[in-house]
């Protein structure tokens, strides 16, 4: 069964993927404006990632059997 903990973990993995792609787009773009937008959004995504990470830790404490 899908528990909340596993789906939040999946979501966290997606967020990490998005962050990495934004970082590569920021590095590969030639346009200053685009670079800035990609960089700024990457920082926003990083803050979302941090919140989700701490939520995953909490959930692992609540449901230790799903620790993975």
């Amino acid at each position: 069964m899908m528990t909340i903990a596993t789906s939040v973990k999946q979501c966290l993995a997606n967020i990490k993927g998005i962050e990495a792609q934004l970082s590569s787009l920021a590095l590969n773009s030639n346009d200053k404006g685009a670079q800035e937008v990609f960089h700024d959004t990457m920082i926003t995504i990083a803050s979302v990632k941090k919140d989700l990470q701490s939520r995953v830790l909490e959930l692992e404490r609540l449901e230790p059997q799903y620790k993975g």
Binding site: S7, C11, I18, L25
Partner: peptide, 20 residues
């Protein structure tokens, strides 16, 4: 297709967070 896919996965993640 990297950029359109990225947009799709952003939208999916946003929906996931709303469900949570």
């Amino acid at each position: 297709t990297q950029r359109p896919l990225l947009l799709a996965s952003l939208k999916k993640t946003q929906a996931d967070l709303e469900i949570f």
